[in-house]
C-alpha cells in the first residue's frame, strides 16, 4: 500500500508533457502498473483527465495587442510613480499592501508581529498620557471615578431596599394588598427625603453630574411617596414606572460598584 502511495505521487509527473519525471522513476512506475490493477486504473483515470486539461487553449494575441500592452504598461508605470511620489509621506497607510508583498509563510508571522507592535505603541502612548499632569482628558477620567462620599453611599444603602420593594411588588400576582407588600413607614420616607435633600446640596458643590442626576430622581420618588396618603396602587404603579423608565436601580448599583472599585484602587 505504501508503494502504491509513492507511485500515485509520481503519476502526474509521468503524464506531464514536459518530461519532468526522471527515467528511473518512470521505469519504476511502469513496472508497478503491470502488477497493480488498482494503480493501473487510477493511472488511466488521471491520464484521461489530463488529456482533457491539455486541450486547454490559450488566446493568440495579435501583434497590435502586444505593442499596446507595452504602451499601457508605460502609462501605468508613470501613473504609479506619480502616486508613489504623492503618497510617500503617508506610507504607514499602505501597511497592508506592504505586508501582502511578502511570501505566504512570512506574512503569517508579520501580521501578528505588526499587530503586537501597534498594541505596544498604543499602550506606551496611553501610559505616557496617564503620567501627564493637567491633561483634561485624564481629569475627566479621574472625575468619573471619584469616590462617593461615605454619607451618600450610606444614603443609597438606605434607599435601595425601599426602591427594590416598590419595583418588585406585584399585588396582582400575590393577591396581597399594597399595604402588605410595602411595609415602609411614612416617617422613614420623610427621613430619607430630608437626607436626600441635604446630601444633594453638598454633592452639587462637588460637581458630580451623574450623582446629582440620580439624587434628583430619588427626591422625586421620595416626594411622591411622602405625599401619598395611603400607599395607593396608583402611587405604587407610578413609582414603579418612574424607577423603570429612568433606570434608577441600575444607576444606583453602577455608582456603588464604581465606588467600591475606586476604593480598591
Amino acid at each position: 500500500m505504501r508503494k502504491c502511495k509513492k507511485i500515485k505521487d509520481l503519476m502526474p509527473d509521468a503524464l506531464n508533457d514536459n518530461n519532468v519525471l526522471p527515467q528511473a522513476e518512470l521505469r519504476k512506475l511502469r513496472e508497478h502498473l503491470k502488477d497493480c490493477q488498482r494503480c493501473s486504473e487510477e493511472y488511466k483515470k488521471l491520464a484521461a483527465l489530463l488529456a482533457v486539461m491539455n486541450k486547454r487553449q490559450r488566446p493568440q494575441m495579435s501583434d497590435a495587442f502586444w505593442e499596446n500592452y507595452s504602451l499601457r504598461l508605460e502609462e501605468k508605470l508613470d501613473a504609479a510613480e506619480e502616486v508613489k511620489e504623492q503618497k510617500s509621506p503617508a506610507k504607514i497607510f499602505n501597511l497592508i499592501d506592504w505586508l501582502d508583498g511578502f511570501d505566504f509563510k512570512i506574512r503569517w508571522v508579520l501580521y501578528p508581529l505588526t499587530a503586537a507592535a501597534i498594541l505596544v505603541v498604543g499602550i506606551a502612548i496611553g501610559l505616557y498620557l496617564s503620567h501627564q499632569p493637567g491633561k483634561d482628558i485624564m481629569n475627566t477620567a479621574v472625575s468619573s471615578l471619584r469616590r462617593l462620599s461615605p454619607a451618600v453611599a450610606e444614603h443609597f444603602d438606605n434607599v435601595l431596599p425601599l426602591l427594590l420593594d416598590y419595583s418588585n411588588s406585584s399585588p396582582q400576582q400575590t393577591g396581597n394588598s399594597p399595604e402588605e407588600n410595602i411595609l415602609v413607614e411614612k416617617s422613614t420616607v420623610k427621613k430619607l427625603l430630608l437626607e436626600n435633600q441635604l446630601l444633594k446640596r453638598v454633592m452639587t458643590k462637588n460637581n458630580n453630574i451623574s450623582v446629582n442626576e440620580l439624587m434628583n430622581e430619588l427626591e422625586l420618588i421620595l416626594l411622591e411617596l411622602s405625599n401619598d396618603s395611603g400607599d395607593s396602587e396608583e402611587t405604587r404603579r407610578a413609582v414603579q414606572r418612574f424607577i423603570k423608565e429612568n433606570n434608577v436601580l441600575f444607576k444606583m448599583k453602577t455608582l456603588e460598584k464604581k465606588d467600591k472599585q475606586t476604593l480598591a484602587i
Binding site: 502526474p12 483515470k45 488521471l46 484521461a48 486539461m53
Partner: peptide, 24 residues
C-alpha cells in the same frame, strides 16, 4: 486539485472518446 477536476470533468471520462492511448 486532480481529485476536484476529476469530479468536475467526470462526464468526459465516461462519455467521450478522447481517442487517447494510455502508454504504459
Amino acid at each position: 486539485a486532480i481529485r476536484k477536476m476529476q469530479n468536475a470533468l467526470g462526464f468526459y471520462r465516461d462519455s467521450l472518446d478522447l481517442g487517447m492511448e494510455v502508454q504504459q
